[in-house]
Structure formats: structure tokens, C-alpha cells
Design a protein around this nucleic acid. Structure first.
Lengths: 206, 206
DNA sequence: TGATGATGTATTCATTGTCAACATTGTTTA
DNA sequence: TAAACAATGTTGACAATGAATACATCATCA
């Protein structure tokens, strides 16, 4: 009995536990709701214990954001593996995964990309993680170019356009800034598919 | 002499003054740097005076964001007036204006669209202002369709795609999330023009 | 003129990030 | 193995800040 009673003085894995608890707290109201003391309470340590692992609140937030980018990259990688060997379909796979992640983790996404609460440049590993996803875009574009289904040009620049579209659609969706379409696409993932399709075929008439 | 000395007890236009001061403060570090007491000091009133005009910090932020949307809409309207009567050029005018505004007011833009610090839904006038810009997109798309240079389809849905792209490019740019392109477009406004061009002509090869 | 509501002030309180001093424990080393 | 040390956690304190309450000033209008 009492095997839970007298907690050891040292937590054991406080750093990770704090990040996890922070992620949960984020999802319930964003960075504004992210309270260092509350996290500490939740995890069962004193209010200043976190300072042994993070210089300040920013540092914890940076770690949380980094975890977010890692998870996003994981999901996209997994989605790509299951997608058929067709460039457009691979783009769609990335796109809908991106959207799904945003819808599932709106607060996290806002944090990750807002640049409002943390200064990304001062956290190198976060900075790198934040760029990881982009490589998949380039990869798919290059594949498309090799197969002749995507126009010529700097693959990285084209990937940048793609990335921007995905990001814009996803963000505006979770911000309730996308108007509802009566006869247009319905639901986030359809909206995303539609958008990618439009970028692929072009708005201009030939 | 002393014509500035004994300030009148009542400020006269405190509400607007607070918004202006708030905008300035925002531009120096975002909402995190937006300190109610500091604003009050800056404006020369007591630290609880703002509460006569704003229920709380959120309410002031909402007013600031609203002002931001109004300014953005103004700029875009002005840009449209000067643009030639060509749909693609009008799109480009909107796009580069959007980008310029974002580059000029990164913190404000982040605030306006983050949804992190304020709950837009509870401020109707802000909510409306946030949707004003969108109408210009629809307008231009419809014009393009009439002239036959833009493909058929729900103009509002197409405008949504356009809006998403502009937003994505602008936001990722100010967040330093757009990789630099060696032989691609150079500089924010060129990057924006390039992106719109790509959306117009399509990434797919015909 | 004097009643009333709007606007501003002074004071106070709770929350929260941060820091300094101290406690506990695991690890290394003499 | 014992002492020293580094890592980790706790307690208590402080300042900044958002917010609430009670009071002061002033313009307007019946």
C-alpha cells in the first residue's frame, strides 16, 4: 500500500511532463491560459520547479511549439507514405493532413505560427523544426516536375506558394475567417482539396 | 505660459487616444508588450481610467484590431481605385497592398488574425470589420469572370482561395517562414506577385 | 440651480512570472 | 566508501499587472 503516497523528491522526467501538460493546457485556451504555476500544480511540483528546466516561460513555450512542429511533420510523413504515387494526390494528402492537424489543434497551430509570444530566432532547435515540413513540399513538387505534371521552375519557390496556400486556408479556417459557401466546397478538408485543385489548374482561363 | 500645465480633469477623447496609443505600443512588441497601465501613463491618465471606456484589456484589443481591419480595407480600396481595369492586375494590386500592410504592421497583423488574445465572436463590430476586405476579392473575381479571364464557378469560393493565398504568403513572410529563393522571386512584394501569378496560371502542366 | 450621469482618481487585492536561499538526492572522485 | 559536487526540487519573497471598489470632478439639462 501507499505506493503512491510519498512521492520521491525528484520527479524523474519533469521536463517532458511539463511539455505534455503545457500542450494540454494550450489546447484549452491558448498561451493566455498557459499559466506556469498552474502547470506546476497540475504536475504536482512546486511553482518554481519548472525553472530548473526552462529559463523562463518563453523557453517552455518554445519547447511546446517545437513538439508541435515535430508532431505535424510526423503526421505529414505518415500521410505521404500512404498516398498513391501521383503528385497531385500527394499534394492533396499533405494538404488535408495539414488541415486536419490545424482543426485538431487550433491553439497549438496559432501558437506555432503566431510568433506573437515567442521569439523563434532565439531557439535554434525550434527554428529548425519549424522548417522541417517544408522539405516534403519541395520533394513532392520535384517529383511532379520529373513526371512532367508540374510546370518547370524553381521547385522551392513553387513549394513556397503551395505552402502558403495550405497555411492560409488552414489558418483562416480555424480563425473563422473563411465564409461559408452555399454551392462551394463544404467542410474544412473539402475546402482544402478544392483550394489545392484550384492552385493546380489555375484561376486564369486559357 | 503654462497653457499645458493644469490639465482638465476630463481628457476629452480618451477612448480614441487609448486606441492610438495602443496601436503604437503594439507595433513595438505585440500584445505581450501591450500594458494597460503603461498605456494609461503614456496618455497621462490614471491606470484605471481606461476601464471607463473598455470593459477589460480584451475590449481594448478588440478596438485596436478593428481599427487595423479598417485601415487595411482603406488601403486596399485605395489601391483598387488606382489599378488598371484588368482583373489580374487588380488582383496583384490587392495582393501587394496586403503584403505591404503586413510588412508595415507585422504585430498588428498577427494580432488581427491570431485569434489568440481576443475572442472575435464577442465583438460584433470587430467581426464585421474583419470580413470587409473579403468583399473586394469577390468583386474582382466577378469582374474577371464577366470579362472571361477567370474561370467559371462560385466567385465567393474562388475569392476564398485567393484570400487564403494572399494571407498565407503575407503571414509566412512576416513570420520568417518563407525560405529565401536563390533564383526565385526576391523581396516580399515580388514574392507576392509571383504567388498570385502562379495561382492564376496554375501549377499543373497542361 | 441642482440633480444626474459620465468620466477620471486613489486605493486595494489577487494572480503571476521570477528570483534567491535552502533542501534533497544521485553521481563522481579521492 | 566518504566527501564533494551537480542536478533537481521547495519555500518564501517581490514586483508588475489586470481588475474591482469607493470617491472626486465636471458637463448637461430640466
Amino acid at each position: 500500500m501507499d505506493r503512491e503516497k510519498s512521492k520521491p523528491y525528484h520527479h524523474g522526467d519533469l521536463r517532458n511532463t511539463l511539455i505534455q501538460a503545457g500542450l494540454e493546457m494550450l489546447s484549452e485556451g491558448g498561451a493566455a491560459a498557459l499559466d506556469l504555476r498552474k502547470i506546476a500544480r497540475k504536475v504536482g511540483v512546486s511553482h518554481s520547479a519548472p525553472y530548473r528546466h526552462f529559463a523562463d516561460k518563453q523557453a517552455l513555450l518554445a519547447a511546446i511549439n517545437e513538439e508541435g512542429f515535430l508532431r505535424l511533420a510526423e503526421r505529414i510523413e505518415a500521410a505521404l507514405k500512404e498516398a498513391p504515387n501521383d503528385p497531385l494526390e500527394q499534394l492533396q494528402a499533405i494538404a488535408t493532413t495539414y488541415m486536419q492537424f490545424a482543426v485538431d489543434n487550433p491553439w497549438l497551430m496559432r501558437e506555432m505560427f503566431s510568433g506573437l509570444t515567442i521569439d523563434r530566432e532565439s531557439f535554434p532547435s525550434l527554428y529548425n523544426a519549424s522548417k522541417a515540413v517544408y522539405h516534403y513540399y519541395v520533394q513532392v513538387v520535384e517529383l511532379g516536375q520529373q513526371q512532367g505534371s508540374i510546370i518547370e521552375g524553381d521547385a522551392r519557390a513553387l513549394a513556397g506558394v503551395l505552402k502558403s496556400l495550405l497555411h492560409g486556408v488552414a489558418m483562416l479556417t480555424i480563425e473563422n475567417q473563411m465564409p461559408p459557401f452555399s454551392d462551394g466546397p463544404d467542410g474544412p478538408s473539402q475546402l482544402m482539396r478544392y483550394s489545392v485543385q484550384m492552385l493546380y489548374q489555375g484561376l486564369g482561363r486559357k
